Simulated assay, not measured.
Amino acid sequence: MIRVVWGTGSGPTAMSSYDTALADAGVENYNLVSVSSVIPAATDVEAVGTAPDLGPAGERLTVVEARATTAGPGRASAALAWSQSVDDGPGLFYETAGEMDREDVERRVREGLAAGQELRDWEFTEPRVCVESNRADSGTYTTALVLAVYGDSDPIL
């Protein structure tokens, strides 16, 4: 199973705002390993918001990550879109993020997913999209993220 989670966070540094956003999504205690955006065939994808317990702290977690961090004043937005084959075949994630508003990041992620679909000879289901956005006040940082989390964690050593 792939779970789609999301979060936002603010803090005095870029890294602290990222850590807070990871905590908001429920994945702050894992070592994230990013992969490209292909969904394996016959895999369920579920938008859950906050991750359940995925294993012991410090383990490796495989993800597709859309993430933006900005210093205030400003806005960080992230979006993840996905679509799967109608015949239970493979699917595709597409991610985008930046200092833009919710509507702009959603439009861009939909355009990107459509471009990725055009490259493949698969018949796709209707796209699904998750968007997170957060504004930073002056003197702080903010992060918005959306992650596709592949399965449970694995030992890193």
Rank of each mutant, 00 (worst) to 15 (best):
A25V: 15
Q117E: 11
P127C: 08
A47I: 08
E28T: 13
R3E: 01
F124W: 07
E123F: 12
G98Q: 01
A114M: 09
D137C: 01
Y30V: 13
L147N: 02
V109F: 06
V35Y: 12
R110P: 00
W6A: 15
V86W: 10
S83K: 00
L157G: 12
E111F: 13
G89D: 03
D104F: 12
T43L: 01
D152S: 01
D88L: 10
G151A: 12
V146F: 11
C130P: 05
R107Y: 09
E126A: 15
G58A: 00
T50M: 08
T8E: 06
P127V: 07
L32V: 09
V35L: 03
G9M: 10
E123W: 13
A97V: 15
I156C: 05
G72Y: 14
G139H: 12
P90A: 06
G74P: 07
R120S: 11
V4I: 15
L32D: 02
T8M: 06
G9N: 08
A76L: 13
S34H: 03
E126S: 14
D53V: 14
V86C: 02
V5Y: 05
V146T: 11
T13L: 06
R75V: 15
V38K: 14
V4M: 08
E46V: 10
E95F: 12
L145C: 05
L113V: 02
V129A: 07
E95G: 11
D121R: 01
G72I: 14
A97T: 15
Y30Q: 07
L119C: 00
A51M: 03
A71W: 10
G74A: 04
G7N: 04
T50F: 13
A51W: 07
Y18E: 08
T43Q: 06
Y94R: 04
P12V: 15
T20A: 15
S37F: 12
I156E: 03
D152Q: 02
S77N: 03
G55Q: 03
